[in-house]
């Protein structure tokens, strides 16, 4: 594989290696590094597993998690080495998040929290309206759709699927 952006390689091998390390996209080694750390933490917890009080065989409850964590570390090391020596030509350098995806992430987390406290009806209406306001929607019927959607889903789940949607912590105050 050819490294296009490497101008002139220095004679010294270590120099070349150093050059490669600084040249590559740091983004590509963040993920494997983080996963290595997580695997190490997992290995620590595995060592703390209780000893079973009933039966056990040669392959116990620690075997699988340990094996997986070790293999995971090996894979991550391979990925990092691969990044250093064979830079993936397809990599783009677009930022990880843009304004909209950050909004999306906050929106989902916010909605999940709201449904816990406010229950389905209030949380969904609120979230839908906030969303439409965020995107500066002026179309009135979008807001109408939001209301209709929320109510129809509520009705269908309760009366057709027999699934009681969350009522929220303040259920007694709002829906009784």
């Amino acid at each position: 594989m050819v490294m296009k952006r490497t101008p002139s390689t220095k004679n010294c091998a270590w120099g070349a290696f150093f050059k490669k390390v600084t040249d590559m996209n740091v983004k590509n080694i963040i993920l494997p590094s983080v996963i290595i750390v997580i695997s190490l933490v997992a290995l620590y917890f595995i060592s703390q597993f209780a000893v079973p009080s009933f039966q056990d065989a040669s392959v116990g409850s620690k075997f699988f998690p340990t094996a997986i964590a070790v293999i995971q570390i090996i894979i991550c090391v391979c990925i990092i080495l691969g990044e250093i020596f064979h830079k993936d030509p397809q990599q783009d350098s677009a930022p990880l998040f843009n304004k909209y995806s950050i909004f999306g992430a906050v929106f989902i987390i916010g909605y999940a929290t709201a449904i816990y406290f406010l229950g389905y009806l209030a949380a969904t209406l609120l979230a839908f309206f906030l969303y439409l306001v965020f995107f500066k929607t002026t179309k009135r019927y979008y807001y109408l759709i939001a209301i209709v959607f929320t109510l129809v889903i509520y009705y269908v789940f309760a009366n057709v699927f027999y699934v009681a949607l969350p009522e929220g912590l303040f259920a007694g105050l709002f829906y009784d």
């Binding site: 209780a50 079973p52 409850s61």
Partner: peptide
């Protein structure tokens, strides 16, 4: 592997 071990019921993670 999260959860009670399916064979020995030891809690994992």
């Amino acid at each position: 592997t999260v959860g009670l071990d399916p064979i020995t019921s030891v809690p994992r993670f």
